[in-house]
Simulated assay, not measured.
Amino acid sequence: MDNATMNLRAHSSPDHRVVKQAIGWLLRLRNNTGNLKLHQQCEHWRTAHPEHELAWQRVQSLQQELTASLCAVPGTQVALHTLETSAQRLGRRQALKLLSGALLIGTAAWLGKDQIGWQQWNADFATATGERRGYQLPDGTRLRLNTDSAANLDFTAQQRLITLARGEIMVTCGATPQAFERPLRVQSHHGMFEASVARFVIRQDNDCTRLSVTRGSVAILAPRSADGTPTLVQAGQSYLVTPEHVTLAPPLAMEAGAWVDGLIVTRDMRLADFLKEVNRYRRGYLACASGIADLRLSGVFRLEDTDKLLAILPRTLPVQLRYRTRWWVTLERQA
């Protein structure tokens, strides 16, 4: 079943027994990659109920994040191979225990992200670092998640609510019968947003949430403006939201929703800020020397291979790349 068209029920939270079934299927398929009949049986199980598909997607996402995390840390290749070999020799019960232990280890293995793996496990929708996904919600709303993002869905007879746990999303909602009876709301750590017919991007950072509207209008319900009314944000506008204040945002040095198409589109952007943005899509350390931090660049950069993206920079700026490891990259002034 396609992720983009998966019809998830409200309060999607698969039963732990279904999650164990999904892990069981994952282990069996990993040990029998060429077994077409087994793949067909797994596909039949996934399509039998929306809860099965949701559990499968969560297990797949977390397994990919675990593998990427372990592979990204030098010296863990042997440990990962041992883990896989041991899982193949164990029975189903022991393999489940081993995989559970691996999940605990893997989510803490890379750059202190000990909570992110479990957020991804618990979230209704989630992406790993460098991954982008799209979903169609039961009411027809289109939800897109940027890199390293997570969101939860709470659709009932009384409300339509998306809660952004971390990262960045683009929401496209249309004129449906429930659009005006139950306007779509998005909750971030810093505020509450409401829309009926609109397309908008919400990015949640540590200190604030940025709302950028590209079509229609979005109301910021909380916090309220100085006169106690919601702030109405029109297409082309961006606002910064903290728990206390709502302020008009300065112009962006990049296109807010370009990541949906796998792009970073910059306009006279500082090199240091550009590298910080690119680093959201890759693991490890990426920075530049202070002497070149204020160099400016404009252009369209593709995100599918960040190493190729970085290789372009010395052609347009007086900089050179220095790779200490695959995961530790700095830019210095060209000699």
Rank of each mutant, 00 (worst) to 15 (best):
M1N: 15
A10N: 08
S12P: 15
R17S: 13
V18R: 07
K20V: 06
G24S: 00
T33K: 11
Q40D: 15
Q41L: 03
E43I: 06
E43K: 01
W45F: 01
A48Y: 02
H49A: 10
R58F: 01
Q64G: 13
V73K: 12
P74A: 02
A79N: 08
L80C: 07
T82W: 13
L83H: 06
T85C: 10
G91Q: 09
G91D: 14
R92L: 14
R93P: 05
K97A: 14
L98A: 10
T107E: 15
A108V: 02
W110S: 15
D114Y: 09
I116S: 13
R132D: 13
R133G: 11
R133P: 10
Y135N: 05
T141H: 02
L145M: 04
F155E: 13
F155P: 07
I162R: 03
T163A: 09
G167P: 12
E168G: 00
I169K: 00
M170Y: 04
V171R: 05
R182M: 10
F193Q: 04
A195N: 08
A195R: 01
F200Q: 10
D207K: 03
C208P: 08
S217T: 15
S217H: 06
L221K: 07
G228R: 00
G236I: 07
V241Y: 00
T242N: 09
A249G: 01
M254T: 15
G257T: 03
K276H: 02
R280D: 12
G284Y: 05
L286V: 08
V300I: 09
F301T: 02
F301C: 00
R302D: 13
T306Y: 07
L321Q: 10
L331D: 14
Q334A: 14
